[in-house]
Design a binder for these strands. Sequence first.
DNA 1: TCACCAAACTTGATTAATTCAAGAATCGCC
DNA 2: GGCGATTCTTGAATTAATCAAGTTTGGTGA
Lengths: 148, 148
Amino acid sequence: MEQIADAEDLAQVLRGASLRVTRPRVALLAAVHDHPHADTDTLIRAVRVALPEVSHQAVYDSLHALTGAGVLRRIQPNGSVARYEARIDDNHHHLVCRSCGAIADVDCAVGDAPCLTAAHDHGFAIEEAEVIYWGRCPTCAATSAPTP
Amino acid sequence: MEQIADAEDLAQVLRGASLRVTRPRVALLAAVHDHPHADTDTLIRAVRVALPEVSHQAVYDSLHALTGAGVLRRIQPNGSVARYEARIDDNHHHLVCRSCGAIADVDCAVGDAPCLTAAHDHGFAIEEAEVIYWGRCPTCAATSAPTP
DNA sequence: TCACCAAACTTGATTAATTCAAGAATCGCC
DNA sequence: GGCGATTCTTGAATTAATCAAGTTTGGTGA
């Protein structure tokens, strides 16, 4: 549970996004940095280590505010609950383990804004491509079970 | 609400996947063919047009069975509920509208099993790549609102 | 430094999607 | 046609997330 960035840095991130700096938000940002790809429940618990009295609603509100401002990114692989990550402005994608649900980051192979060209865009104005690689993490791949 | 494939064809699909052929399952398969990318609630309603007495649980069970057998594919773009599609064995991806949630299919630009090479796989055994293109559908793009 | 006010937070209830569980009905095989 | 396992019905329970009303707090301008 180490603090990767100090409170003042995180406050700057919030100010930079025109968001008010509150204790719950700073604690939440720290929690997301500490627990990449964590779900909401994990984040609530992590925030409460620093601020025991924070309500779950404050965390939900903050997650929405920070996600809306582009400070956090929400991801939600197929049967999973919502998870959040401190979004760096790179264009990275995710590896998800079918067995244990572990998530890892992968840089995009093609470039900075790749995959943005679909074969046939049906008239859609495409803004972003999200890629999820499904497979088995090293630990689960080593386990006997061939395919769960 | 036209039947795209007749009941016997759908029954064959089920038998081919070693699944028992039941009225709810056949009706569900037909419903998924008729309503591509529909959510569970829509499918329950569609199934009940043909079989009014079907329980929601039967639909949930059938969706799990057919998804597990590879006859259907479950997709769930970021804040959306689960949606299902009759999975043809091609490797196609999805266009999702950020405004209205509309989903369209896109063939994969790169080939049959593309994108399967990530820059750095972290030791994962990658089996499949899922791509979601986020943007705005023609209708929503035409609407004044620049970004919702 | 102080006071104000909108934004953010607390508290507590509510919704929506999905799952769990026990017993009845049905499918496929013999 | 009858048997046994699977599937379906019924109804309750869980979980994630949202809604709503009232209180507190951060930031701005006096």
